[in-house]
Design a protein around this nucleic acid. Structure first.
Lengths: 166, 166
DNA sequence: GCACCTATGTATAATCC
DNA sequence: TGGATTATACATAGGTG
C-alpha cells in the first residue's frame, strides 16, 4: 500500500524506520484489536519502537498475564522446541511474493494439548458471549462508535518518541 | 477490505469466527513480520484461535548472531513461563533493569458496560499518557505460525541452525 | 517530527468451486 | 471442507506545509 511497493527489508535510515514504524504500528494495533474482537479470541501484541519504546495491545478478554499463563500451561516449550522454518517456507507462506524476505519463520500453531485449557477457554467464550448478549439487549450498543472510540485511544496513546505504558 | 464492510464485533457464528480468524491471522502475522523487519524492531504476537490453538510470532534481527537470538528467546521463554503478574518480568529481560520501565497491561474488560468500558479506557489512557516518558526497550524477534499443512515441512528442517527454541 | 493528502498496493468478505 | 477468485474496503509510501 502506498505510492511504491516496498522491499521488505530493514529500512536504511533511522528516520524512515521511525516514520514507518509509527504508521504501521497503528495499523497493526488496529488489526490485532479487530481480530480479538471479531473472533473473540485472546491476543497479545508487544512491540518495540526503533528507539526502544514498547507498545502492548491485548484483547479484551484477558490481559497479558492471563494469556501468557495460558501459553505456559500448554507446555509451550515442548511443542515449540522442534519447530523451525527457513526462507523456503516463508516464501510459501507469502505465496509468489519474491520480495527480499530473509527472515526465518518458526511457528507454534498446534492444537491445545491440555484439556483443562480447552475447558477454561470454553467457559470464557461462553461468558463473553452471554455478556455481549446482555449488552446488546440493553442496546446502547453501537459497535462502530465503540470501536472507533477504542481505536482512537489506542492510537492516541503512542507515537513520538514516547514510551507507552501498557 | 472485502465485499462488505464489517462491524467490528464478535461474529455470531463459530464458523464465521474460524474462517475470519484464519484469514486475518495470516494477514496480521505477515504485517507483524514486515514491521519487525522494515523497522528492525522486536515484537511478539501471540494469539489463540477460536478453538484455543496458540500462535506465536516474533521478529528476529538478522544482524544479531543466532546465538544471541536464541539466548534472548530462551530468556523470554523462561521468564514467561514462570511469572504472570505483569510485564515486570518481561521488561527486565529486555535490556537491563536499569531502565525506568513501568509497563502495565492495557486491556479492556469485555464484560463492562459501554460506559464503564469507556471510563476505563479513559483512565488507562491517562495513565499511559503520564507514564509514557520512561520506557526504553529494544530487541528483536521473529517467527511466524504457519499453516498446518506446511508444518510438517518445518519439522523436517530442524537440523538447520536457525532453529529457535522458545 | 506531526498531521494531512492521495495515488497505489494490500488485505479480505463473499463467493465460487 | 478447504482452497482459489473477485470485488471492495483499507492501509500506507511519498510528498506537502
Amino acid at each position: 500500500m502506498g505510492r511504491k511497493k516496498l522491499k521488505i527489508w530493514r529500512l536504511e535510515s533511522m528516520k524512515s524506520r521511525k516514520i514507518t514504524y509509527v504508521k504501521r504500528k497503528a495499523g497493526l494495533m488496529k488489526k490485532a484489536h479487530e481480530l480479538s474482537i471479531l473472533c473473540d479470541v485472546d491476543l497479545v501484541l508487544l512491540m518495540f519502537s526503533p528507539t526502544g519504546s514498547p507498545t502492548l495491545v491485548t484483547g479484551e478478554k484477558n490481559d497479558l498475564s492471563s494469556v501468557v499463563q495460558k501459553l505456559s500451561n500448554m507446555t509451550l516449550e515442548e511443542r515449540l522446541h522442534r519447530q523451525a522454518g527457513t526462507l523456503e517456507i516463508i516464501k510459501k507462506m507469502y505465496k509468489g511474493d519474491n520480495q527480499n524476505i530473509d527472515l526465518k519463520i518458526f511457528s507454534v500453531d498446534g492444537k491445545c494439548k491440555i484439556q483443562e485449557l480447552q475447558n477454561q477457554l470454553e467457559q470464557l467464550h461462553q461468558k463473553v458471549y452471554e455478556t455481549n448478549k446482555n449488552l446488546r439487549l440493553g442496546h446502547v450498543y453501537d459497535s462502530c462508535s465503540l470501536k472507533n472510540d477504542i481505536k482512537e485511544k489506542i492510537l492516541e496513546s503512542e507515537d513520538e518518541d514516547e514510551i507507552q505504558k501498557l
